[in-house]
Design a protein around this nucleic acid. Structure first.
Ligand code: SF4
Ligand code: SF4
Lengths: 137, 137
DNA sequence: CATAATTACTACACAAAAGTAGTATTTATT
DNA sequence: AATAAATACTACTTTTGTGTAGTAATTATG
């Protein structure tokens, strides 16, 4: 399962924006480029703006743009904005608390992969991704 | 997100069964021990039986038991049975094809973690888990 | 000032996942 | 043979995630 559809969309939108040499992006434009349902997209982008990943400009000629540096927006921050990183930090088997004192069946197995994965999410920024070869958004 | 509720249940059930010194388990017993909704559980276990993780015995004094060796049931096999490993092998950004020739934005980032994670899922069996210290199912 | 193009908001519709209920079938026990 | 205890099956309900529709608010343009 890994990611929700909404998180997929968020990552696709932001990495795409980061890859383009534009300042301002309308939802309509993103919609046409990425084929994400328009109305769902506007809500998502408004949401990303509220969470500080983007800033929004209302009215005619409005749109969305980055205000922070690309190197300040990590994958973890994006996920945090849309579904909350809790869903990754919490117990993989769904128990409330999650500690090594009271390990679930997947604890030892997941512990290491989890740490790696989260570190990657935290350390990889839009700027990093922008330097990769990406052929589709 | 990582795992679905159903996968969580499946792992909890099977690791719990593996940890007990019993041969046969009724759904009712598992339900009482693990607090998984009874009806949902019976369907899940019937399903696991169909997929070969368990075998079922009908009628009074019936139940579920392992037929294969614990070391032959990997986490990957369990996931395959309930939601299909495709959801882990497929593109993390939801594109149909998934190849290094046509990489998505998370390709390079996810590539490594994915390989590690899947390897872990494939290599870790119920027997392995049974040798860990697990304090809750 | 009127219009058009945009984001923001609210409510609803649809789909998938999770959970519930009832009944049929099988089999050991009495 | 009747009963009880278990799995198997089918259908429905609830909840959550995803998608749609309509309208309000904002602002540049003519
Ligand atoms: S795995 Fe351990 S740390 Fe992770 S999930 Fe379960 S109890 Fe928690
Ligand atoms: S990541 Fe690459 S290999 Fe993985 S997912 Fe996307 S295109 Fe596929």
């Amino acid at each position: 399962m890994i990611l929700t559809k909404t998180t997929e969309y968020a990552v696709r939108v932001l990495t795409f924006m980061a890859s383009q040499n534009e300042d301002l992006f309308s939802a309509k434009y993103i919609h046409k480029q990425l084929n994400i349902p328009y109305k769902y997209l506007t809500r998502l982008m408004t949401d990303l703006a509220k969470h500080g990943c983007l800033s929004s400009i209302r009215g005619r000629q409005g749109g969305f743009k980055f205000t922070k540096k690309l190197s300040d927006i990590s994958l973890a921050k994006i996920i945090e904005a849309v579904e909350g990183m809790d869903s990754f930090n919490a117990c993989i088997l769904g128990f409330d608390e999650c500690s090594s004192d009271n390990p679930c069946a997947m604890h030892y197995v997941w512990e290491k992969n989890k740490a790696e994965f989260i570190k990657t999410l935290e350390n990889t920024t839009l700027d990093d991704i922008n330097h990769f070869k990406v052929t589709r958004f």
